[in-house]
Design a protein around this nucleic acid. Structure first.
Length: 628
DNA sequence: ATAGGGTTAG
């Protein structure tokens, strides 16, 4: 065997190598095959006495690349040290890089510290490695050392640091790095500027992301993708779609990742027409619908109103992971199909996928939306025993929601007392919402106080409390809350409703008169309300905030953006056409009642996506079963 | 010898 031939070779160096190799071969017969062959190539070489000059740095590099375990790297490392090969910067840097790739950061960093001489690659690789494994403190610390060492920062290091800023949401640090980018004159580098755009967008500063993006002299696919994804992330998915069009106009071909971000934007926007467009694009360009793209498409179709189209994608996917299953479960959930969501769960287990925390949230939330109280509670209590998932505040929030919607306020409060997890805004919000649905002011104030203490800058918390007071007819308190809100310079999020008509969408606000067909819309609405009143519709003025007389209140109600959109839909589409509507806030009780009756009187299906879920109105009923 | 963008809830 090779082993023997090796030991018969001589010279000091060869003996050391042989020793080394004997050690190795015993311990990693299979896993270290690559390293073995590296050593073997030296010992079986025709030259009987290998000298350091015949040990090519390239053979070390290729051995490193083929290492499968950290121990393999350590052995090559030891050999390189013995042979003096570590003095070669290329070889040393490659060691750091490969250690880092195997997540052996301690080894990588120790080596880096021991190096007598370092160049930019050494620094870059270490900084990049820290960013990759999420050790941001070390990443920033090492970058600082790098800057202080007086080295010239380069276009390789900066994207790593910017990525760390993005992942830690450190806008301030990101801006500092941006200054360094200018000083180094690297702002026109493609990688650096794309990383800047990504950093700004993910830190919530789309304006500056866009500024950097607009200044770029050249934009490649990735630059476009980060900008598109940035807008979708920041709640402006319309701009994402506009940029997607522009990207193609400018002759930059989107790849699969770009389409995933566009699919994500369509999911955010919720317009079915756009969903179909991007689906066509994907089909026409023969992008395979893989795990991530498929999952994103399920979510998109669900959030654009079609749980059936979502299911079709789901059924067509060969590979599914826990995210895919969770997405489909939550797709059923937001459409009020709790039973279907629950049926999917055992199928997931059968296919060998274990649920995670989010899957559990999706199940609980599906039960809540469908009013499946017993099923939801049973699942909640089984989480820990069956799936080893200890319920956190998100799960408790779902259960409070579940109990609250079902009128079991007492149980919800008991649960809240028992819970040890720290209560967050979402939790208090659910509790407050439960009080709101059942017109209970008893506990609402306590919950609202906690909520406002946690974050006094969220307008919707004031609105929720003010609604509770309004419901109880406590107009003085309504006024107080509104004053408090105004004194902090906060304003209620203006409500709007979108309606899809063919390939276009139209936006309405309360009392909106900007539509060219405005007159006709109001006339139609008036006639419709009269018809509905004959069918038993009584405006529910409890949903109006202001303390004004009943007649005026009804007047404001009748121009809620949702009603205007429905009236417009009736005018703009042939009878029987399904109306697709999307709202930024939750649907108000009066509009809900109105839409139910309108679906019966006009014989149309009306699909409304609100901030929380979908409502399918048909023949006078809603899929939410009046739980929402 | 080194580099970027993508999927689930609330």
């Amino acid at each position: 065997m090779l082993h023997f031939r090796c030991s018969t070779t001589f010279s000091f160096l060869a003996c050391r190598q042989a020793e080394e190799r004997c050690l190795l071969s015993s311990s990693f017969s299979s896993c270290g095959a690559a390293v073995d062959s590296f050593f073997a190539s030296h010992f079986s070489s025709p030259t009987p006495t290998p000298t350091p000059t015949t040990l090519d740095p390239r053979s070390f590099v290729s051995a490193l690349v083929r290492c499968r375990y950290v121990d393999d790297i350590r052995r090559v490392h030891a050999f390189a040290t013995t042979t003096g090969m570590m003095r070669n910067l290329g070889v040393a840097n490659k060691h750091i890089y490969i250690y880092a790739q195997h997540f052996a950061l301690a080894d990588a960093y120790a080596l880096f510290l021991r190096m007598g001489e370092r160049d930019n690659v050494s620094w870059s690789v270490v900084i990049g490695a820290f960013a990759k494994v999420g050790d941001y403190a070390s990443c920033f610390g090492t970058f600082r050392d790098f800057v202080r060492s007086g080295s010239r920062i380069d276009n390789f290091t900066l994207p790593f640091v910017l990525r760390a800023c993005r992942d830690t949401m450190s806008l301030r640090l990101g801006v500092e790095v941006h200054n360094l980018v200018f000083k180094a004159g690297l702002h026109s580098d493609l990688f650096v500027s794309a990383a800047l755009v990504d950093m700004y967008a993910r830190c919530g500063d789309v304006e500056n992301a866009r500024k950097v993006f607009d200044k770029m002299v050249k934009r490649d696919m990735v630059s476009w993708t980060v900008m598109i994804s940035g807008y979708a992330d920041c709640g402006n998915p319309e701009e994402s779609l506009i940029l997607f069009d522009r990207m193609m106009e400018e002759g930059v071909a989107p790849d699969k990742i770009t389409t995933v971000t566009v699919v994500f934007a369509c999911a955010k926007l919720g317009v079915m027409h756009n969903a179909k467009m991007i689906h066509d694009y994907i089909s026409n360009h023969k992008f395979s619908v893989d795990l991530i793209l498929g999952t994103a498409m399920i979510d998109m179709y669900a959030k654009c109103g079609s749980v059936d189209a979502a299911r079709e994608i789901f059924d067509g996917m060969r590979d599914k992971n826990v995210i895919t299953w969770s997405t489909m479960i939550s797709a059923y959930g937001i459409h009020g199909c709790g039973r279907e969501a629950l049926e999917l769960f055992p199928l997931m287990l059968q296919s060998g996928i274990q649920p995670n925390r989010i899957t559990c949230v999706s199940i609980l939330s599906a039960c809540s939306h469908a009013g499946l109280v017993d099923e939801g509670l049973r699942f909640f209590h089984s989480m820990e025993k069956e799936y080893f998932i200890y319920p956190d505040v998100k799960h408790y929030t779902c259960v409070v929601d579940l109990l609250g919607r079902a009128g079991k306020l007492k149980e919800a409060l008991e649960l809240s007392e028992k819970m040890t997890a720290e209560k967050d805004e979402g939790f208090w919000g659910a509790l407050l919402g439960a009080c709101r649905i059942h017109g209970t002011t008893h506990f609402a104030e306590r919950a609202a106080k906690s909520l406002l203490e946690l974050n006094p800058r969220i307008p919707s918390y004031y609105v929720l409390l003010s609604n509770i007071y309004a419901n109880a007819g406590r107009w003085d308190d309504v006024a107080k809350v509104r004053e408090l809100m105004a004194s902090k310079g906060l304003r209620k999020t203006p409500g709007w409703t979108l309606i899809e008509i063919g390939k276009k969408t139209h936006r309405f606000r309360v009392g909106d008169k900007s539509n060219p067909l405005s007159k006709e819309i109001y006339k139609t609405l008036k006639v419709l309300i009269e018809k509905l009143e004959l069918a038993g519709y009584v405006p529910d003025t409890n949903f109006v905030l202001h303390d004004i007389d009943e007649e005026l209140k009804a007047g404001i109600l009748s121009t809620h953006s949702e009603k205007l959109a429905i009236a417009y839909g009736i005018i703009a589409t042939p009878g029987g056409t399904t109306l697709r509507i999307s709202k930024n806030l939750r649907v108000c009780g009066d509009c809900h009642n109105f839409t139910k009756l309108a679906s019966a009187v006009t014989q149309r299906e009306i699909i409304v996506r609100d901030a929380n879920r979908f409502h399918h109105f048909r023949e006078g009923t809603c899929s939410c079963g009046d739980y929402w």
